[in-house]
Design a protein around this nucleic acid. Structure first.
Lengths: 154, 154
DNA sequence: ATTATTTCGGAAGATTCTTCCATGCCCAAT
DNA sequence: ATTGGGCATGGAAGAATCTTCCGAAATAAT
C-alpha cells in the first residue's frame, strides 16, 4: 500500500468509492477532520490521480443491457500490427465493457453487455467476427452475475 | 430502450455516468431544464433504481492493485449445492471484482485485481484452489488493459 | 369544454462549498 | 534550547448550491 496516503486519505478513498455523493461536510465528519481539510485532501485525491472519475452506476437491466457475455478471441497472426488493429477497432465498439490482452489460450478477453441473446448473436455475426484479424471467438454466456464490478479493496 | 425514460432522463443518465460530480445546477443547464425539475428527475433516477450508486473510480495502480487476472474455474460437481457453496465463498474474497456463472468450458469466470504476479500466485495457492468444490482453474494474466470498465452505452 | 392530474419553473430559506488567514506542529539548523 | 521555515490544520465568511413550496402551464381524462 502506498505511503503517500495516510490513514485519513485511505478512509476517504474507501468512503468515496462506496458513495461518491457524500458531501464534503459529511465526509469530513466521517473521517473526523474539518471541512476545510477534507476539501483540500479530496481535491488532492483528484488532482494526483487517485480518483480517476466519479461515475453514476446505471442499472444495466433498466437500460436494456441486461445480458452479459464473455468472449475469448484468437487472432490470425500474433504481430504487433495485428494486435494494434484489433485494439483500435474494439475500442470503438460501445457494447464492449472490458477488453484485455491475455496470456493463455486466447489473445483477448472481452466483456460485453447487450440487451439479450438475440442481440448478441446479431452483434457477434456482424461486428465481432468482422473485427480485423479474428481467427475464432469463443462465447461464454453469463447465466448468473454473482459479483459484478465490486469496489476495489485496499 | 425503455420508454419510462424520456430524452431528458437518458441524457441525464449519460451525463451522470460520465461525471457523477456534476452539480444539480450544472446538470440542469446541460439538459436545459430548471434546477428544480432537474433535482426532481435526478431523485427519481435514484429512487426508481436507474442509478444503483455513485462511485469514485480509484486508480488501481495507485493503491497497489495494478495486476489484473482472469480465472476460469471448473467445479467438481454441477449440483446446486456445489454452486451455492462456491458463490458464497467467492463473495467474501475482496480481490474478486467479477464472478460470473457461465455456459461453456468453465463453470465460473473471475476477474481479479492484485498487486502483482507474486501476489496472485500466493492468493491462487492459498485461496482460489481452496474454494469449495474447485476441480481446476485456468489463469489468464492480463498483459494489457485495452478497455477497462467502460461506461454503459445506451 | 371542463375538470383532474401531472409536470414545470421561480423564489427563498437552509445548507454547503470554497477560500483566506491565523494558529499549531514538526523538524532541521543554529 | 531556541529559532525559523515549511506544512497541515481549523475557523470564519462570502459565494454558490441545494431543497422545498407554491402557483402556473401543459397534458390527459371526463
Amino acid at each position: 500500500m502506498p505511503n503517500d496516503l495516510d490513514r485519513i486519505d485511505l478512509k476517504m478513498l474507501r468512503l468515496l468509492q462506496n458513495n461518491g455523493r457524500l458531501s464534503n461536510a459529511e465526509l469530513a465528519q466521517l473521517v473526523d477532520v474539518s471541512a476545510a481539510t477534507c476539501h483540500r485532501r479530496t481535491q488532492r485525491l483528484f488532482d494526483d490521480g487517485y480518483i480517476k472519475s466519479v461515475r453514476a452506476m446505471v442499472e444495466p437491466r433498466k437500460v436494456d443491457r441486461g445480458a452479459l457475455v464473455m468472449v475469448g478471441v484468437v487472432l490470425d497472426r500474433s504481430t504487433p500490427e495485428s494486435f494494434d488493429a484489433f485494439e483500435k477497432a474494439v475500442a470503438k465498439l460501445n457494447f464492449v465493457l472490458d477488453c484485455n490482452l491475455v496470456a493463455g489460450d486466447f489473445d483477448y478477453f472481452l466483456k460485453i453487455r447487450v440487451g439479450d441473446m438475440a442481440d448478441f448473436n446479431r452483434i457477434h455475426g456482424t461486428q465481432l467476427i468482422a473485427l480485423p484479424g479474428v481467427r475464432q471467438t469463443r462465447t461464454f454466456f453469463v447465466m448468473k452475475e454473482v459479483v459484478d464490478n465490486a469496489p476495489l479493496n485496499f
